[in-house]
Every structure is written in C-alpha cells, then in structure tokens.
C-alpha cells in the first residue's frame, strides 16, 4: 500500500504491519462511539445491541427531565464563565511572559502550566480543602474558579504560540501614531493574535464542559454539571439517558474541533 514498486518484501511487510496497527488503534479509540450513538436511539431500557427498535425517548428524558436539563444548563453556564475568565487571564499572562524583560519567565510559565500536569484528583482534593476555608465549596463560583485554573494553561499556550509570530514593531508603530497602550492592544495586537485567543477559548470551554473529577468534589445537587449527572447516573442505576447525554457531548466536541480546524485553515491562508 502506497509503496514504490521497487520496495522489498520486508519493507512491504513492515508497512502492512504499521497500517494494521494504526487501524487497530483508531478502532480502539472510536469503537465506544459506535456503541454509544446507536444505544442512545434505542427504545430498550437495557443496553442491547443490535438495537431492536429506535426511539427518541432518552433524548426526551435528557431535555424534559429537570435533573438532566438543569445539569446541562449548569455545565453551559460554568463553561461560559470559565471560558471568559480563562481567556482573559491566559491572554494577559501570555502577553506579560512574552515581554523580553519579563523576570523568571521559565519558572512562572511552569507554574501556570502545572494544572495540566498535576493529576486531576490532586487538584480536586486540593481545591476542595482550600476552597472549603473560604466557603467556596458547593458554589458555582468555586467550580468556575477551579475550572479556570485548569483551563488557563491552554490559553497561555495557544496565545504564547501566536505571539511568537507577532511582530512587536506593529505595537511600536501604533504608539508612534498616537495610540495609547489599550487602543494599540485592541486595534492592532488583538486582531493579529486572535486565532490563538480563540483556539485557547475553545480549549477552555471544552475543558470545563467535560470536567468531572473537580466538579464531583466541588458541586452539590444545585450546581451539578452534566458530567457529574452522568457519573451519578452510572452509579445509581444504569440509565440510557447517559447515552443521549454522551452523544450530545460528542456532537459538541465535534463542533468545537470543526471550529478549531476552520480557524487554523483560515490562519494558514
């Protein structure tokens, strides 16, 4: 496959093995989706494949049952607030770090990125104990703050990457034309680093919307997010509404990544 005609038999063999391995890995990654999506449309309350009869009843439950619907709203609100906070803070941090005279750049960058590397359970337990001191557990504010800490590294990384291609002489030119620091930022810098800011925002949204561990620790019934609701849905009784919720999450992820792909393609042009 895709080999020149002069390839030796051993080259052919190794190529076939590589392709087979790649296909196996992809199947392994995608297979759960092939199970979840059809099951979400099944009429049966049990997980049986192949699907015997199709229906939308689990979607009706997802949108009609207040527990599920509120969880979706909670997730959306937390994700939007997290996105706003993380994008603002992450962009400001990236701008600061990019300055040539910024002190302790590496150490501070490592600190900002650490929530990505520290095991999530540790972040969750840590914020649970720490936020408890301030009465922030079982509040939406607490959840948003913890998610912001998790999401900000993505923004810092994507904005830092676009800033490395940004020519600071443009800011200088704007200043020479009389622009204040703020208007030089909003009129010149921001439009030129926008692809990085938007990719960061998309990652931030996805981070918060999908996050379950920290949310389990920090939310009570009132702030319960969709992943938490799904998790408790598995524990208590296996409710096929989970499959509908999972399918919705899947569609959201696909949409977000399509947006990212569009964005990078526009940038490349």
């Amino acid at each position: 496959m895709w080999l020149p005609s002069y390839a030796t038999p051993s080259e052919r063999l190794s190529r076939i093995l590589v392709v087979a391995f790649a296909v196996a890995v992809m199947l392994f990654l995608i297979a759960p989706l092939f199970i979840i999506v059809p099951l979400s449309f099944s009429k049966d309350p049990f997980f049986t494949l192949p699907v015997r009869e199709y229906s939308l009843r689990w979607y009706e439950d997802l949108f009609g049952n207040p527990r599920w619907f509120e969880a979706m709203i909670n997730s959306a609100v937390a994700a939007v607030l997290t996105t706003i906070l993380a994008t603002t803070l992450g962009t400001l941090a990236a701008l600061g770090i990019a300055r040539p005279d910024f002190p302790y750049r590496r150490a501070i960058m490592a600190l900002l990125i650490s929530p990505m590397i520290v095991p999530i359970v540790i972040v969750a337990v840590g914020s649970y104990l720490f936020f408890g001191e301030f009465g922030l557990t079982n509040t939406r504010a607490g959840l948003v703050l913890a998610h912001t800490a998790l999401a900000t590294p993505f923004v810092v990384i994507t904005v830092t990457a676009t800033l490395s291609t940004y020519d600071t002489n443009l800011t200088r030119a704007a200043n020479s034309l009389g622009a204040s620091g703020l208007s030089a930022f909003f009129r010149v810098t921001l439009p030129n680093i926008l692809p990085g800011v938007i990719s960061g925002a998309i990652f931030a949204f996805a981070t918060s919307f999908d996050e379950v561990v920290v949310a389990l620790f920090l939310t009570a019934a009132e702030q319960r997010t969709l992943p938490v609701q799904m998790f408790s849905g598995i524990r208590d009784q296996i409710n096929p509404t989970i499959m509908a919720a999972a399918t919705m999450l899947l569609i959201l992820s696909i949409l977000l990544f399509a947006a990212l792909a569009l964005l990078t393609r526009k940038k490349a042009r």
């Binding site: 002489n169 443009l170 034309l177």
Partner: peptide, 25 residues
C-alpha cells in the same frame, strides 16, 4: 515616524491603515 520594516497593520487595508489613526487619535 517611518520604520525600516514599514510596519503596516496586516489586518487592515491600506485605506484603513491610514484612516484608523486619523479617526481614533
């Protein structure tokens, strides 16, 4: 001031490059 590397704003047209500072400043 005029710079060695021109420093026109790449996201704006020639017209907007000149008109934006006139309007804002």
């Amino acid at each position: 001031m005029v710079f060695q590397q021109f420093n026109l704003f790449p996201h704006l047209t020639v017209l907007e490059n000149c008109a934006l500072p006139l309007r804002l400043v």
